[in-house]
Amino acid sequence: MHRRTLAGIVTGLTLATTAGCGGADVGADPGLGKDHGAVEGAREVAEPQLHLTTIDADGAVAQLDLLEESPTEIGTIGAPGAVESDGRYLFATTAEGVEIVDSGMWTWDHGDHFHYYRGEPTLVGTVTGDGDATVATGPLSTAGSTGVFFRDSGEAVLLHNEALADGEVRELFRIDAGSHDGLVAPIGDGALVTVADGGAITVIRYHDADGKAVGEETPCARASGTIATKVGVVVGCADGAVLATETDGRIGYERIPYPSEAPRATRFDGRKNRPTVAALSGKSGIWLLDTRERSWTHLDAGTSLHQVVAVDDEEGHVLALDTTGRVRVFAAEDGKQLAVTEPLGTSESAEIQLDQDRAYLNDPAKGVVHEIAYADEARIARTLETPTVPEFFAETGR
């Protein structure tokens, strides 16, 4: 069985850069401040603590260590309808609202290097609310915030990430925005919140950490889809995207219009905290949004797709899950198909998650997650049996 070892890749770099930050002894309780991602009781370690954290249809939560292939049971939440993750937490929409699982594994992006932490997995608590919830996360799990929008009650909630890291669900604000398919996109000390007129979204508005509306509204008709990138926060609009950036506490907006009339993007996905993200465009199209260049690229996969994800690596890989359960690898430059797997499962909850050298796809029918070496002709590196059926999952520790 193939076992990937990341130690040789990252240990030297991590040890050197951790020392350069004034630091913690690797393997000991970190002496760094929270501006480096440290949390009391967690250990700073020499490599990413990559895990698969899984939730079955009844809410049983567990995780699998990807280095040791050892399982850990975490607990039980309500039956999930949807799950989002920032690479540490899983935010599961249940009948109670949004229940939060802390994997206890995370990476702190310090710009030119990273810090890696290992703590204890736990069930943090619940954000109450009515109806389907849209969750938007930021680039860091121990700083900034997480946004939750409840469709039926129209409540826009901003959560305090530092409190989450300490095991507390703390709301920075809860605003009545009226019932609609809205979103709360964290940026700076606050968040962008959709504003609807008669249930139709027309603009987005920035609210500070106290919930106060600050600055001018920005047009964004039928806003749908948001993601944090290395450059700023993207919100999808009917005619393109708004890119929001924060400088010295002030929020600025740039419009990135579509270059053609191809079907719009409504959900963005990509490797965490990279500048380029991907989105479906109709049945077989792929939009790539480069937030550094403020430009769109449109590709045609030639087959019906379920999900697309931008790797945004040096080779420009784009991964797609098609409706037959195959994972396809495309070149971002020209849309050429580079590799394709055999069918790996067609569950409605099947989803690709990825890091810099592997992708993961859950197959709940078989109770496994496939590990795919996407840069190596989409080779199946491992098929991993998870401790709970992976109806929903996240690769954590990223």
Rank of each mutant, 00 (worst) to 15 (best):
I372K: 05
V10H: 12
D357L: 15
D102H: 01
A143P: 10
L354H: 02
I372T: 02
Q49W: 07
I77P: 10
N273S: 12
P343I: 01
R382W: 06
L123H: 07
G190R: 02
E96R: 06
S103Y: 02
A209W: 00
V203W: 13
G302T: 09
E40W: 06
D112N: 14
V234W: 01
G215E: 08
G138S: 06
E44N: 10
A262R: 10
G22H: 04
D176E: 14
T134P: 10
E395K: 12
T324I: 10
G81F: 03
G33F: 03
G20N: 11
P257N: 03
E162N: 14
M105K: 11
R255M: 14
A42R: 15
E342L: 09
G75R: 01
E155C: 04
Q49P: 13
S347F: 01
E342Q: 11
D210W: 00
E385F: 06
P30T: 04
I55R: 01
T386V: 06
D86Q: 00
V83G: 12
L159A: 01
G111H: 00
H306A: 15
M1N: 11
V61H: 03
H2D: 14
V327T: 13
V327M: 13
G167C: 00
A143I: 08
D189I: 04
D102N: 03
R43L: 15
V233Q: 14
T72K: 10
Y374N: 06
F392H: 09
D176I: 03
T76C: 05
F149P: 11
D355T: 09
N362D: 12
A46H: 10
H36V: 10
C21S: 12
P259W: 03
R250I: 14
T218H: 12
R294M: 09
Y253W: 12
G75V: 06
G104W: 01
G78Y: 00
V368H: 00
I256T: 05
V309S: 13
V277H: 02
G129F: 04
D152L: 04
L299S: 07
E68Y: 05
L305Y: 02
T128C: 07
H110E: 15
R255T: 15
T107C: 09
Q356F: 14
V101H: 02
G154Y: 00
A320H: 00
T383Y: 00
H51Q: 11
A163R: 15
P390C: 02
R170C: 03
F393D: 12
S260L: 06
F330G: 14
L288H: 03
R255N: 13
T14L: 08
G147Q: 06
A262E: 15
A262W: 10
